[in-house]
C-alpha cells in the first residue's frame, strides 16, 4: 500500500472537515476522491501533502510515517486547481524549480526538463511566461513541474475545475493516458462524478467528512452502498420506495401488468439523443423519470397525458430511498420482478 491513512480527523473551528478517516491507497494506481464541495476531500488531499496538518491520526507514505513531516520533505507532487504557476518564471524554469532546489547538475536538469516538456506537449513553449499560456497549457505545465522531481505520489486538487468543458474533457483523456505511461501513484480530487468514473481505477466517495464507499467505477455505479452514493454517481428517480436509475426503467402500455406502476405522461423533454419522460403515478406521489432512446420513444408513440406503465428492466439496480434527513438507506439488489 502506497498511502496509509489511519484515524485522521480535522476541524476548522466547529466545522468537522474530516471525521476519523482511514483509507489505504494502492501503489501505481489512479484513485479519485469524489464528493460534494465542503465534504472534506480536498482537506484530506492537503493533509496527505502536508499543506494542512491533521488534528489526529497518522499518514504513511510508502511505509514512512509522514504525519509530522513538512511538505518539502514528503516528496509528493501537488497540482492545484488554479495552477499556482510561478508567474515570474518561464515555463522551463517552472518545471526545473524542484530540481534546482535539489541542486541537481545543470545538464541533468536540462535533460529532465526537455523530457517532461515533451511529455506534456509544451516543448515549443519553454521560454514563454505562464501568462502567455492557455489554462489547459498552464495546467499541463503544473503537472510537468510536479512530475519533474519524480514524486512518490502525485496529488491533484480539482485539476480541471477551472477549465472550460471541452478542454476539461481533453485533459481528462490525456491524464488517463499519461498515467498509463508514467505509473506514479496518483490521487485526484473531483466533485464531477463523470470525471471520476471515466479516469479513475478506484473511487473513494467522501461526504460530510466520512468515507461513504470505496470501489472501482463499476462497483460504485452498479452496487452503490447507500442512497447517497447512488444519488451522487448519476441521475436517480424514485419508483415506489426504491431509488433507481431512469435508464433502468422501461415504459409500456400494458395496463394489466401487476408489477408495474401505472400513471400518465406528465412531461416529455428531449435532450439530444435521449428522451426524458416524466410519469405521474395514478397512486399519487413524485413523478417517475424514465429516459428512453429516441427509437424506443417513437415505437411507443407516447404523448403528454397518454396512460402508461413503468417497470424495472431486468438486472436493474435499486437502493431503498432513505426518508429525507435520515441516515443512508440500506443497499439491496433486486432482480427486477415480472420481467416480460
Amino acid at each position: 500500500m502506497s498511502i496509509e491513512i489511519s484515524g485522521v480527523g480535522k476541524r476548522f473551528g466547529s466545522f468537522v472537515a474530516l471525521d476519523d478517516v482511514s483509507l489505504s491507497i494502492p501503489s501505481g494506481r489512479l484513485t479519485a476522491l469524489l464528493g460534494p464541495s465542503g465534504g472534506g476531500k480536498s482537506t484530506l488531499l492537503r493533509i496527505i501533502a502536508g499543506l494542512e496538518t491533521a488534528d489526529s491520526g497518522r499518514v504513511e507514505i510508502e511505509g514512512i510515517d509522514a504525519t509530522g513531516l513538512p511538505p518539502q520533505k514528503r516528496n509528493v507532487g501537488f497540482v492545484f486547481q488554479h495552477y499556482a504557476a510561478f508567474k515570474h518564471m518561464s515555463v522551463r524554469r517552472n518545471v526545473a524549480f524542484g530540481l534546482e532546489i535539489r541542486k541537481r547538475p545543470k545538464d541533468e536538469i536540462k535533460a529532465r526538463v526537455d523530457e517532461l516538456l515533451d511529455l506534456v506537449h509544451l516543448s515549443q513553449f519553454g521560454d514563454r511566461l505562464p501568462a502567455q499560456l492557455s489554462g489547459g497549457q498552464r495546467q499541463r505545465m503544473a503537472l510537468a513541474r510536479a512530475l519533474a522531481v519524480r514524486p512518490t505520489v502525485l496529488l491533484l486538487d480539482e485539476p480541471f475545475g477551472a477549465l472550460d468543458a471541452k478542454v476539461r474533457k481533453e485533459l481528462r483523456d490525456w491524464l488517463r493516458r499519461l498515467h498509463d505511461e508514467v505509473h506514479v501513484t496518483t490521487v485526484f480530487v473531483t466533485h464531477d462524478q463523470e470525471e471520476a468514473l471515466e479516469v479513475a481505477d478506484e473511487i473513494v466517495v467522501i461526504n460530510e467528512g466520512r468515507i461513504e464507499q470505496i470501489g472501482s467505477p463499476d462497483d460504485l455505479y452498479d452496487k452503490p452502498a447507500n442512497d447517497f452514493v447512488m444519488r451522487f454517481l448519476g441521475p436517480v428517480t424514485q419508483l415506489g420506495d426504491d431509488l433507481v436509475r431512469p435508464h433502468d426503467l422501461q415504459l409500456h402500455t400494458d395496463s394489466a401488468d401487476p408489477a408495474s406502476v401505472h400513471g400518465r405522461v406528465a412531461r416529455i423533454t428531449r435532450i439530444g439523443f435521449e428522451i426524458r419522460v416524466e410519469v405521474a403515478p395514478a397512486s399519487g406521489g413524485q413523478p417517475v423519470v424514465v429516459t428512453l432512446t429516441r427509437n424506443e420513444f417513437l415505437a411507443l408513440g407516447l404523448d403528454v397525458d397518454s396512460p402508461v406503465s413503468v417497470r424495472l428492466s431486468p438486472a436493474a439496480q435499486t437502493v431503498a430511498a432513505a426518508p429525507a434527513g435520515s441516515a443512508s438507506g440500506e443497499a439491496k439488489s433486486t432482480a427486477a420482478a415480472g420481467a416480460a
Binding site: 501533502a49 499543506l51 509528493v76 532546489i101 510536479a146
Partner: peptide, 25 residues
Amino acid sequence: DEQEQAARSLGAGPVQTFRRITLPA
C-alpha cells in the same frame, strides 16, 4: 499563497520559498 505552497511541495524550505517565490511576486 498557492505559489508558496507549490514551492514547498516541490521541496523548497521557508527561506528558499521566500527568496525565490514570495519576494519576486
